[in-house]
Amino acid sequence: MSTLETASAPPPQDTTMDHDAHTTPLLDVTGLRKVFAGANRAVEALQEVTFTVSRGELMCLVGPSGCGKTTLLRCVSGLLAPSAGAVTLNGAPVTEPPRGMAVVFQEYGRSLFPWLTAWQNVELPLKEKKVPRDERKRLVTEALDAVGLTDSRNAHPWELSGGMQQRVAIARAVAYEPQVLLMDEPFAAVDAQTRGELEDLVRALWQRLGVTVLFVTHDIDEAVYLGQRVVVLSASPTVVLDDVAITLPGDRDQITTRSLPQFAELRAAIYELVQRAKNGYRPQPDTERPA
């Protein structure tokens, strides 16, 4: 599975997880390719991206800046049609944003409806899903409670700090009860302290709700800290470079986990891989490919 020594360690020791074993693929991405047709030349953003996310898994996608992560996520979420390849969720092909998927965007300030309160922002997608009123109320209450925003339910997004806005977006995604939760560099624009808190929040929600999470980031530490698996992407045109199992204990916290020798090893290994990716390293030589 991996060319890295660290990844040849025993399978994930995530003993805190009591839901199904991570064997059934829920999200299947096969041979995804995306070429943007420009005015006088085509830009190949994704060359051939293949990976699967198992049910109940928390997987991180990491890659050098500008490696087409957002393009990949937009294709996976059905917002953007790929040039070739396929995405299937639970066996069904994804051609438009599917019912069982929720996305948390990097630009929290732009993905919340500024004319709605926190409560209304979380509730609106549920109304669209035709969730009955009582059930809706319960889901919104629980979701806002889970992200610690019970007291700010009547605030508008612009009355909240950046971190709190992203919490609203997370609550909205969680209340939607998706089969898979896609997160596109969700914490890239918040300050470091808030980022740590939000990372722990994602871990806690994932463990509590058993939702499958695909977390895209450019931050290697974040990927190692959060994930059970880290898939490393090459520079654009993107291919998968490696698939690294994160063998850290399931109970993680910002201080002890990050100071484990194992954490440092994994981090170093992935860091090196990303550095090589930045310098143009690719799994197989493709010199015949025009620039």
Partner: peptide
């Protein structure tokens, strides 16, 4: 991003128009 959000959560045509 707001348009993408509305698409991801599968807003109906009427909701998309108004909200």
């Amino acid at each position: 991003v707001l348009r993408d959000t509305a698409r991801c959560y599968r807003f109906r045509r009427r909701t998309r128009l108004i909200q």
